[in-house]
Structure formats: structure tokens, C-alpha cells
């Protein structure tokens, strides 16, 4: 167990360092020492020793704007990646992503309806947006999982096909709505591209419980998921209740993905690429894969989001552009490196 403890300590250290550095970076650069001081000033027991010589405005930037956004990037990146592990595992398809059974199109429709008809324009209304997106995602997932059954059993192939079909139909509705109601288009468009811009502690509070519970429950199913990779008959002969496992894992993955999408919009590529790449490097054992995906996904999205808000500062890029731009070539490199993977 010793190497395990060592690597947990190392990962924690890297993560804390990344949080501090990412919080310091931005259109208004803030010295690392100030960031550390502001963070320390919020920790009971330490705060009395901190002498703050920074302005209130900077403290607001760090504690109310950047810090929640940085933490949200970690939660969403980790959550999407672990959801990707769950979908790739339960559908036994290395190209599955967290959106494969309709979470993203459902969330998009929910969010679009919300933005166009129910929520006042501008950032003020962003508070209730996650509820619309989450409801849409759950509805789409429910429809797809009903369609993805044959003879009373969930069937991975039917599920994927149903996901594609329902996704296409819902996306068409979103496009139609956008054409009909052009005045709010920017809000909708920015949401669809996926961004962490303007997200605060409230959003973090929405997503974190789902991601945390999801990761714990995913680890609980890790052993069964390993066996399930052998195929349904083989898994059955090793004592796994295959039907039950499939249902559980799909519900779990959908809830995690929906919680992430509802606060961040559709951020592509992370949930597909991170688990796949880590499987190429470390193999398919699920306990390892889930833990690695959690922290690599978290750090990856944090780096991508930090780039998104600093590269063309003060203009912000949608983070989805960065994830695809950085992730695509890296993914190709991994494929060509030729670690064996024949599904």
C-alpha cells in the first residue's frame, strides 16, 4: 500500500500547486504570494497569522471569480472523465463518451428552452440554467435507455444507435429553436460550445455532490466492470449480474455527465479522450483507470480552461476549442505509438 500513499500525496501536491498557479493567472495577474495569502486567510487557525496587503477588488477576483471556476474545472474534468470510463466499460466500446446516450443533446435542448423562453437575458439568469439542462439530460437518457432494450435486456448496440437517433432529433429541435428565436442566440451558442466562464460557487455546489458520489460508486463497481469486459456470458459465469451492472453503471454515468454538462455546457473530448488514453497507457483494470481518469481529467480541464481565458486575454475562448485542439493531436500520437488495443 505504500506506493499508493506516496502517489496520493504527490497527486494532491500537484493539484494544489495547479490550483494556486491557475488562480494567479488571468487578465489581471496576481502574485502567487497574494493568492496563497488569500487562501490561507480563509482557513481557520491559520488566518490570524496572515497579513493581507492586497486590495479588496483583487480578493474578490481571486475568491469569488477565479477560485470557484478553477475548482469547477477540476470537478467537471474529473467527472466527465470518470463518466467516460463508465460508458466505455458498460458499453464495452472504447469510442463511447459521456454523451453517447443523449445526455448532451438532452441538456442542450433543456438549456436552449430555458434560455429562450424562461430565463431573463444575460448572466443574471445563469442560476436556474443548470436545472433546465439537467432535466433535459435526464429525459433524453430515459428515452434512450427505453429504446435501447431488446427482449427486456439492455443491449449495448441498440443503446448506441438509439443514442445517435435521439441525439440527432433533439439537436434538430435545438437548431430549429435557434433559427426561430434569433435574439438570444449568443447566450445559447456560447452555452452549446461549453464554457466555464462566469461560473461561481453555486455551480460548484450543483456539480460536486454528483461527481463525488459518482466516483465512489464507480469504484464500488470497479471489480465487476473488469469482469464485464470479458463479455456478458463470461461475466455471468464469473458470478456477475450483468443486467443489473449495466443499468447501474448507465444511470451513474448519466447522472455524473448530466451534472457536469448542466453547469458547463457541452465540453467535448475530455470524457472520450482521457479514459481512452489512460487505458492505452495503464491498461483496462478499472480501479486504476477510474482513479487515474479522475485526476488526469481534472487537471487537463483546468489547464485547458486556464489557456482558454489567458491565451487571447481579455477575450475568452470556449474551453471546448482548447480541449479538442490540444487533445486531438495527443490522441493521434497515442494511437500511432502502437500500444495494442484491439476491441
Amino acid at each position: 500500500m505504500r506506493p499508493m500513499k506516496g502517489s496520493i500525496a504527490l497527486v494532491s501536491l500537484i493539484t494544489i500547486a495547479a490550483i494556486v498557479v491557475a488562480t494567479a493567472l488571468g487578465s489581471v495577474p496576481i502574485p502567487l504570494g497574494h493568492v496563497l495569502g488569500m487562501l490561507a486567510s480563509r482557513i481557520p487557525g491559520i488566518r490570524d497569522f496572515v497579513q493581507g496587503d492586497w486590495s479588496v477588488a483583487r480578493e474578490v477576483i481571486v475568491l469569488q471569480v477565479r477560485l470557484p471556476r478553477v475548482l469547477l474545472a477540476l470537478v467537471v474534468g474529473g467527472g466527465l472523465s470518470v463518466a467516460g470510463v463508465l460508458f466505455q466499460g458498460s458499453l464495452r466500446n472504447p469510442l463511447a463518451d459521456p454523451y453517447i446516450i443523449g445526455v448532451s443533446s438532452g441538456a442542450s435542448l433543456g438549456a436552449t428552452l430555458g434560455l429562450l423562453f424562461f430565463i431573463p437575458q444575460g448572466l443574471a439568469g445563469f442560476g436556474s440554467l443548470p436545472l433546465f439542462a439537467f432535466a433535459g439530460a435526464m429525459l433524453a437518457t430515459w428515452i434512450v435507455s427505453r429504446l435501447g432494450q431488446s427482449r427486456g435486456r439492455l443491449d449495448p448496440t441498440s443503446l448506441i444507435l438509439a443514442g445517435v437517433a435521439v441525439g440527432a432529433a433533439l439537436t434538430a429541435v435545438v437548431s430549429l429553436l435557434m433559427v426561430l428565436k434569433i435574439q438570444n442566440l449568443t447566450d445559447v451558442y456560447l452555452w452549446l460550445m461549453g464554457s466555464l466562464s462566469g461560473r461561481g460557487w453555486k455551480h460548484l455546489a450543483v456539480a460536486t455532490p454528483y461527481v463525488f458520489a459518482g466516483v465512489v460508486l464507480a469504484l464500488w463497481q470497479a471489480k465487476d466492470l473488469n469482469v464485464y469486459l470479458l463479455g456478458e456470458e463470461a461475466a455471468h459465469s464469473l458470478g456477475i449480474d450483468v443486467q443489473n451492472l449495466q443499468r447501474w453503471v448507465l444511470v451513474l454515468g448519466s447522472l455524473m455527465a448530466a451534472a457536469c454538462v448542466s453547469v458547463s455546457g457541452v465540453i467535448g473530448f475530455v470524457g472520450l479522450m482521457v479514459p481512452h488514453a489512460l487505458r492505452l497507457i495503464f491498461g483496462a483494470e478499472h480501479r486504476r483507470l477510474i482513479l487515474h481518469s479522475l485526476w488526469v481529467g481534472a487537471l487537463f480541464l483546468l489547464v485547458a480552461d486556464t489557456l482558454a481565458r489567458t491565451v487571447l486575454s481579455p477575450t475568452e475562448l470556449p474551453v471546448g476549442i482548447i480541449t479538442a485542439f490540444v487533445g486531438g493531436p495527443f490522441f493521434i500520437y497515442l494511437m500511432k505509438r502502437g500500444s495494442g488495443y484491439h476491441g
Binding site: R92, N226, L229, L230, G231, E233, A234, H236, S237, R279, L280, G283, A284, E285, S339, G340, Y341, H342, G343
Partner: peptide, 13 residues
């Protein structure tokens, strides 16, 4: 009872 089915999937284990 152990069963070896006709078709197996091979992931990187």
C-alpha cells in the same frame, strides 16, 4: 460451474 463462451472480448489486461 465455469464457462468459456464461443466469443470473448479482449481488452488490454
Amino acid at each position: 460451474v465455469a464457462l468459456i463462451p464461443q466469443h470473448s472480448h479482449y481488452f488490454p489486461f
